[in-house]
Design a protein around this nucleic acid. Structure first.
Lengths: 190, 190
DNA sequence: CCTACCGATCGGTAGG
DNA sequence: CCTACCGATCGGTAGG
């Protein structure tokens, strides 16, 4: 791991606990047992940490959903795989994901606008899956914008409680979520 | 509106945009056209703003769910009414709700622990509804802890995109959400 | 509600 | 990677 990667990893751990604004460069440096000034030999600025994190994750999510929309066939499969990819990225990069979800608002322009555009593009890829499901006659006609936001929120909330050593694996979480999204709580009348 | 209420209202508007830590007492004062020092004649500290906001909203959510669990009868009705109450509180106090959801982590002890206890109690009241639904045979047997978190996340996400003058009213949002929670996306086989 | 001020801390740079 | 330092800003208090 390069020094830069070490710095970012340490910073993300601290930002998860204390927030972006609540984490000082001095504290990050101290955790690495160097002086604050030394950080700047490896990174440009505090914001670079946030920027790299947000954009790297956004790229991962994009490539996850593109793969799904390119390869799989029916909407049910696509949805399951999209959820699975999303949860895999979140749980595989917990600190980064937490910061991504909670702190992106601290990006300055023009990065903020760019980031929002990426997020909107991701939502749009998800929406395509729902539309396909309607065309196939397997999904209800719903307000798709609303449904996508609801689905994304329930996936993203996983970073709040997921524990790598907890009782549910990422695959199990993805499976439960997909089931919930598809069938809801109501018991089928038989 | 008392001066204190004015200060809190202004502070919440700013904190929604800039975050709790990103909002300074001087900026709040400036928006009210007074000096920062003058704020302290009306409030004890910056944290008091966050504390009052978080605990007042927590109390509102509690009383909303208690009412539901005390009055209504079947689980389906309870769920619908609980969602409706939750969305009504969120949309009726948008700035406060946004700060409540995003900034509670900035509470210092012992308030933080207290707040988490209130949040857990709220989750628990929700879980009772799901359990009742299972007993009545109308809800599927699911992982209730998981289901409650998913439901809460989809409700809370509403503060991210809700616009008072948008196309959906709070009641419509609550209705759509309840429908989604109960039946999901999958079309019934007929 | 203000002036005047406190100690602490911030992100970051110069120069080695 | 460090020492030494910059200007700016922070939450908050004393005293009127």
């Amino acid at each position: 791991m390069s020094r830069k990667e070490q710095i970012i990893k340490t910073a993300l751990e601290m930002m998860r606990k204390l927030g972006y604004q609540g984490t000082s460069m001095r504290e990050i440096a101290s955790a690495l047992q160097i002086e604050a000034a030394s950080l700047y030999n490896h990174i440009e600025s505090k914001e670079e940490i946030l920027k790299e994190t947000c954009f790297q994750l956004a790229a991962a999510f994009q490539s996850g959903i593109r793969e799904v929309n390119d390869i799989y066939f029916n909407a049910g499969e696509k949805l399951a795989m999209a959820v699975r990819n999303h949860i895999a990225i979140l749980t595989g990069n917990l600190d980064a994901s937490f910061v991504f979800i909670h702190e992106w608002r601290n990006l300055s322009e023009p990065h903020l606008k760019e980031f929002i555009a990426l997020r909107d593009a991701y939502e749009n890829e998800f929406r395509l899956i729902l539309e396909q499901g309607e065309e196939e006659g397997v999904f209800n006609e719903v307000n798709n914008k609303f449904a996508v936001l609801t689905i994304l929120s329930s996936m993203n909330w996983v970073v709040e409680w997921y524990k790598p050593k907890g009782e549910m694996s990422p695959q199990e979480i993805a499976g439960k979520l997909t089931e919930f999204i598809l069938t809801g709580l109501r018991k089928d009348k038989m």
